[in-house]
Design a protein around this nucleic acid. Structure first.
Lengths: 232, 232
DNA sequence: CGTCCATTTGAGGACGTTCAAGTAACGTGG
DNA sequence: CCACGTTACTTGAACGTCCTCAAATGGACG
């Protein structure tokens, strides 16, 4: 009985390409780790020493300039893969936003294992292609959208991506109500805005009746159509 | 004697993972195509029907909003791969900036071939991971950098990426002088700015003595250090 | 030499930032 | 459980950057 047998992302993560024998081998080179909110797993610019699967929680990928400006370049959820296999350095840090469980591998071990298991590499390729698509869609937001459009887009995207948390129940229905894994500052860092602008846009969307904000971290979508229209 | 035997990107594109037998098979499902500047190979949002390798020239990947704003989300050079394998739709258009030669495959044929050739998928994975890194670095520019920093970053990046055009000679030395494959409007679409702002920043960099602009499309870097400093 | 189009330059205004103050939520210790 | 202190967030006012609209310049080509 390995840790993989009880893994909740067993059938969604790249591991789903492996049979039980292979999984057992993989299990010997990986180990579980829990991260507290705010704790980092990987730092920007360091050597790529480890990779991991996300089992539970939400983590951010971020880069920054020397003078302290930060940009969140990705957000990962359970079953997502993190780190830079087949490469020497990582271009962005990885930090837990919520408490998070990850399944960590030495990059060297993982690289070697992956090269011997084409089905695993195929899953990883699929995931990477999907992530590239998502990242490029985000570029349109950063390059061309107004503050209002950005915040509306953000809320819509959140309602779609937070769904997959529990794997049972309503399938792929975007959430009406959810709890943000981000502070206002972090939302600003995702959207390329300042915290004040984000806050103003939130209150505007609320006053226009598109969303309700029961508490700081809670969002309820009242008019999804209208929100999507605002998202541009 | 197949077209691949004389292919100039034979040893750099993902095809380099194949032996001559495999290459011959691949050759039977691919065909060469030449694109005129401005001609598109793939349109945003359409079904993913084809993928390709770039043999020669420069192409842009772009998305836009319904109301006509455009954002260039990637630029590809010889030996790069384009299209969305293992997926149903393409999220961005692909358009030639210069005259371009590509080696085109039906996506279905390519997918099937790739799944039987793990070494090819491995190369594709490496390429995709690299592209994702580059794209994420660009997000920092779009989200957090000023107009001046963006233009300076752009010139530096161009000087580095245009090198690989010819495969002999000075290795990986960034170019001092080069010809831009972009119009001012296209540069604006890459940087998330307007054409006027791009123009003003170019003249500023010139007046500060960091670059010279012999003609509209020519750039000569006079002070690389200074330019990198301005890039933030 | 004249036309056309890309680019540059100029002036004014909008949007988002910056800086500053006020308010609400949260946890901690009494 | 409540008072307090701390932190996160909201709101306000002034500023600056970049955008918009408009006109001028310059290069390419007939």
């Amino acid at each position: 009985m390995t840790a993989c047998d009880t893994c909740v992302v067993r059938n969604r993560a790249i591991c789903s390409s492996l049979d039980s024998n292979e999984l057992e081998t993989l299990n010997t080179i990986g180990r579980r780790r829990t991260l507290a909110p705010g704790e980092s797993l990987i730092w920007e610019g360091e050597d790529s020493v480890l990779v991991a699967n996300v089992i539970d929680g939400v983590l951010k990928l971020s880069t920054g300039t020397e003078d302290g400006r930060e940009q969140i370049v990705g957000v990962v959820y359970p079953s997502d893969f993190i780190g830079r296999p087949f490469g020497s350095t990582t271009g962005h840090g990885v930090t837990a936003l919520t408490e998070a469980k990850v399944c960590v591998f030495s990059r060297r071990d993982f690289d070697a294992f992956a090269r011997e298991h084409p089905a695993l590499e195929h899953k990883l390729l699929q995931r990477t292609l999907g992530e590239l698509d998502r990242t490029r869609r985000w570029m349109l937001l950063l390059g061309r959208k107004s503050a209002g459009e950005r915040v509306a887009s953000f809320i819509v995207e959140m309602s779609e991506r937070l769904v997959e948390q529990g794997c049972q129940g309503t399938h792929d229905q975007p959430l009406k109500r959810f709890s943000l894994p981000f502070s206002r500052q972090q939302i600003a860092d995702v959207l390329g805005l300042t915290i004040e602008t984000v806050s103003r846009q939130f209150t505007r969307l609320k006053s226009e009746g598109l969303v309700d904000l029961p508490s700081r971290r809670e969002v309820e979508i009242l008019d999804r159509e209208g929100l999507i229209a605002e998202a541009g």
